[in-house]
Lab assay of single mutants.
Amino acid sequence: KSAVKALFDYKAQREDELTFTKSAIIQNVEKQDGGWWRGDYGGKKQLWFPSNYVEEMI
């Protein structure tokens, strides 16, 4: 599983989504079709976030 870095702040709209700030590192990313991926951040595990808010880390 990979890690991504947030390009923008994102505030969860639902309880199954992540809230994060710009430059946050989201771990254990599971990529899905449809523009939403799952990952771990801030003590939350495998919640959804919009993939267009992040960049992949190499």
Rank of each mutant, 00 (worst) to 15 (best):
R38E: 02
E17W: 00
E15K: 11
A24N: 07
D33G: 10
Y10F: 07
A3R: 11
A24T: 08
T21M: 11
A3D: 12
S51W: 07
R38Y: 04
I26G: 00
S2Q: 13
V29A: 03
N28H: 07
W37R: 00
P50W: 04
D33Y: 09
Q27D: 11
K44L: 13
Y41A: 05
N28L: 04
N28F: 06
V29I: 07
E55T: 14
K22I: 09
L7S: 06
I58V: 14
K44P: 02
E56V: 12
D16G: 10
L18T: 02
K44T: 06
K5N: 06
G34W: 05
Q46K: 08
R14N: 14
V29L: 01
L7Y: 03
F20K: 00
K11N: 14
I58R: 12
K1M: 13
I58F: 14
Q32I: 15
G34T: 08
D9A: 11
F20S: 01
I58N: 14
S51M: 11
T21R: 11
D16L: 06
K31M: 11
V29W: 00
Q32K: 12
T19R: 01
V29C: 06
L47A: 15
A3T: 15
D9L: 02
Q13I: 10
F49K: 00
K5I: 15
S2T: 15
T21Q: 13
G39L: 01
R14A: 12
W48Y: 10
E30T: 15
R14K: 14
Q46W: 05
V54F: 02
E55Q: 11
I58W: 14
G39F: 02
K45Q: 13
L18V: 02
Q32G: 12
M57P: 08
E30A: 12
A6L: 03
D9C: 09
D33C: 13
S51V: 09
F8N: 09
V4W: 13
A12L: 00
A24C: 11
N52M: 12
Q32W: 14
E15F: 10
S2E: 10
Y53D: 01
F49A: 01
L7R: 08
F20H: 03
W37G: 02
A6C: 07
K1F: 12
G43E: 09
T19F: 03
T19N: 09
V29R: 00
F49V: 02
G43P: 07
N28C: 10
S2K: 11
E56K: 05
E30V: 15
W37C: 04
E30H: 14
Q46S: 11
I26E: 01
K31A: 05
E17H: 11
D40F: 02
D40M: 00
D16W: 10
G34Y: 07
N28Q: 07
F20I: 04
F8Q: 12
F20N: 03
D16F: 08
D16E: 11
Q32C: 15
G42D: 13
G42E: 10
W37P: 01
Q13P: 03
D40S: 02
P50K: 05
G34D: 09
W36P: 01
L47P: 03
A3G: 08
G35D: 09
K31V: 08
G42N: 12
R38P: 00
E56S: 08
F20R: 00
L47Q: 10
R38I: 09
D9G: 10
I25Q: 04
A12I: 02
E56R: 04
R38N: 05
K44V: 08
G39V: 00
D9F: 05
V4Y: 14
D9R: 04
E17M: 05
Y41N: 02
I26H: 00
G42M: 10
M57W: 12
W36T: 06
F49C: 04
K5T: 11
I26P: 01
Q32P: 12
K22V: 11
A6M: 03
K11G: 07
V4A: 11
F49Q: 00
E15P: 14
S2A: 13
K22L: 07
R14P: 03
F20W: 01
W37V: 00
T21H: 14
K22P: 04
K31S: 06
D33S: 13
T21I: 12
E17P: 00
E17V: 03
L18H: 07
R14G: 10
M57Y: 15
N28Y: 06
D16H: 08
S23P: 02
W48H: 05
V29Y: 03
P50D: 03
A6G: 04
R14I: 05
R14W: 08
K44W: 10
T21W: 10
F8L: 11
G43R: 06
G39P: 01
E55D: 08
N52H: 14
K5H: 08
K45Y: 14
G42T: 01
V54S: 03
Y53K: 07
G35I: 10
V4Q: 04
S51I: 08
M57I: 15
K1P: 13
W36G: 01
G43Y: 06
E56M: 08
K1L: 13
L7M: 11
D9T: 07
R38G: 02
F20Q: 01
K31G: 02
E56A: 09
K45V: 15
Q46I: 01
G42C: 11
R14M: 08
G39E: 02
Q13T: 12
Y10L: 00
K22Q: 13
N28D: 05
N52Y: 10
S51Y: 06
W37Q: 03
K1C: 14
R38T: 07
E55Y: 09
E15H: 11
R14C: 15
D16Q: 08
S23W: 13
V4T: 05
A24L: 04
Q32Y: 15
Q46D: 08
E55C: 12
P50E: 03
R38K: 14
N28K: 05
R14Y: 09
L47I: 00
R14D: 08
A6H: 02
F8S: 09
I25L: 09
L18Q: 00
R38M: 08
F20L: 05
G35H: 09
D33V: 11
T21P: 15
A3I: 15
G39Y: 01
Q27F: 15
W48P: 04
G35F: 10
G43W: 05
S23F: 15
I58M: 13
N52G: 11
D9S: 09
P50S: 04
S2L: 15
G42R: 07
K11D: 13
G35Y: 08
R38D: 01
E56Y: 06
M57V: 14
W37E: 02
T21C: 15
L18A: 00
K45S: 12
V29N: 02
S2R: 12
D16T: 10
S23K: 08
M57C: 14
T19Q: 07
S2Y: 14
N52P: 06
S23E: 14
T21V: 12
K31I: 10
I58L: 12
D33L: 11
A6T: 06
W36I: 03
K11A: 13
F20Y: 02
M57T: 10
I25V: 12
S23I: 03
G39R: 00
K44S: 13
G34N: 09
A3E: 14
S51K: 11
Y53G: 03
Q46T: 05
Q13L: 10
M57G: 08
G43K: 07
K1G: 14
M57D: 11
I58G: 13
I26K: 00
N52W: 13
S2H: 14
W48D: 01
E15T: 11
V29D: 02
G35T: 08
E30Y: 14
R38H: 04
D40R: 00
Q32N: 12
P50M: 06
D40L: 00
R14V: 07
N52C: 14
W36S: 04
K45F: 15
E55R: 08
G43H: 08
Y41Q: 04
L18P: 00
D16R: 03
S23M: 10
T19G: 06
L7Q: 06
Y10N: 02
I26A: 01
E30P: 01
F20D: 02
L18C: 05
Q27I: 15
V4D: 03
Q13F: 07
F8K: 15
G35V: 08
A6Q: 02
K22D: 05
G34F: 07
A24W: 03
V29E: 02
D40C: 04
V54D: 01
G35E: 12
Q27W: 14
M57K: 06
I25N: 01
K22H: 08
Q27S: 13
L47D: 04
T19V: 03
A24H: 04
